[in-house]
């Protein structure tokens, strides 16, 4: 066992998850590829969404993959950072909106 949880080389082995459960793995990758194909949203727009979500779920593999994907698609660094802010705003907003729950509970329990 290596002394770190994340190894950049593991990203290239992503496909091997199908080895131990081919049916579900294959279905996942077919679904994944369909999701990222050009559709009502462009592949470029999807790449930016993926980059933002990668940061929200804090997946280093995904950040690596979608930074490179963005560069290949001609997405500029300012656009990438703006997308990350969208993800960060939703994540922080999601935390803060629970403040209302705290306020409700506080008032309910207080004299």
């Amino acid at each position: 066992m290596k002394n770190n949880y994340y190894d950049p080389q593991d990203l290239k082995k992503f496909g091997s998850i199908s080895d131990w459960q081919p049916e579900l793995g294959d279905k996942f990758f077919a679904y994944y590829n369909s999701v990222f194909a050009e559709g009502e949203l462009s592949a470029r727009e999807k790449s930016l969404i993926a980059l933002a979500v990668s940061h929200v779920v804090q997946c280093p593999y995904c950040i690596d993959a979608y930074t490179k994907d963005g560069l290949q698609k001609g997405i500029e660094k300012e656009e990438m950072m703006e997308a990350i802010h969208v993800g960060a705003a939703i994540k922080s907003g999601a935390a803060l909106v629970h403040g209302v729950q705290m306020m409700n509970r506080h008032d309910q329990l207080s004299m």
């Binding site: 470029r44 560069l71 698609k73």
Partner: peptide, 17 residues
């Protein structure tokens, strides 16, 4: 040609952009 250590993206999509 890419401005860095990565491959070019899809030719048609880049042409459109």
């Amino acid at each position: 040609n890419p401005s860095g250590a990565f491959l070019p993206g899809d030719q048609q999509a880049l042409e459109t952009d």
